[in-house]
């Protein structure tokens, strides 16, 4: 029995993806010492509002209890593990496509200086971990006495 041509890969979609990756890679390269680890798992989007910093980690298929989120000295770390769905090697099954990430992961984001480490809210919905960190209330301007 031949099942080889069950799911022919879409060559054009694949090329699209490669091209998109190149375009993204040449984009906004910020001089961050931790680099911009693109293509890692989970993929991350970071946004900012005047009152908070919003981090979206695209981490589908994770048990929320196994997710570890830590904020220390302005560095946010998201770590966890995703179990593989692939059958063991001796199982009577064939893996045709194997693209999804599995294993342990860890990603680190540097946050701006004005965030409040005590006002962090993390939610896991539809496979996206949304972390919202409030910014500190702007320091009041104060007059400096000259002695």
């Amino acid at each position: 029995m031949f099942y080889r041509s069950l799911f022919p890969r879409d060559v054009f979609a694949e090329l699209d993806r490669i091209q998109r990756g190149l375009q993204q890679g040449g984009g906004d390269l910020s001089p961050n010492i931790r680099g911009t680890a693109r293509g890692g798992y989970p993929a991350m989007n970071v946004g900012s509002t005047p009152r908070s910093v919003e981090i979206y980690a695209f981490a589908p298929g994770i048990d929320p209890a196994s997710l570890d989120v830590q904020l220390e000295k302005g560095v946010l770390t998201v770590a966890g593990e995703r179990t593989s769905v692939l059958p063991p090697k001796d199982a009577p099954a064939t893996v045709h496509i194997d693209e999804r990430f599995s294993g342990r992961f860890r990603r680190v984001v540097t946050l701006p200086d004005d965030v409040d480490p005590n006002a962090v809210d993390a939610r896991y919905t539809d496979g996206v971990l949304h972390i919202s960190v409030q910014r500190k209330a702007a320091a009041q301007p104060r007059r400096i006495h000259i002695q």
Binding site: Y56, P60, P87, A93, H96, D98, E99
Partner: peptide
């Protein structure tokens, strides 16, 4: 995606976060 085939059929897993 991951695509796995066994004797009775095919299982497809796709990551669609968000």
């Amino acid at each position: 995606v991951d695509v796995i085939e066994d004797g009775a059929g095919i299982t497809l897993y796709a990551d669609l976060p968000g």
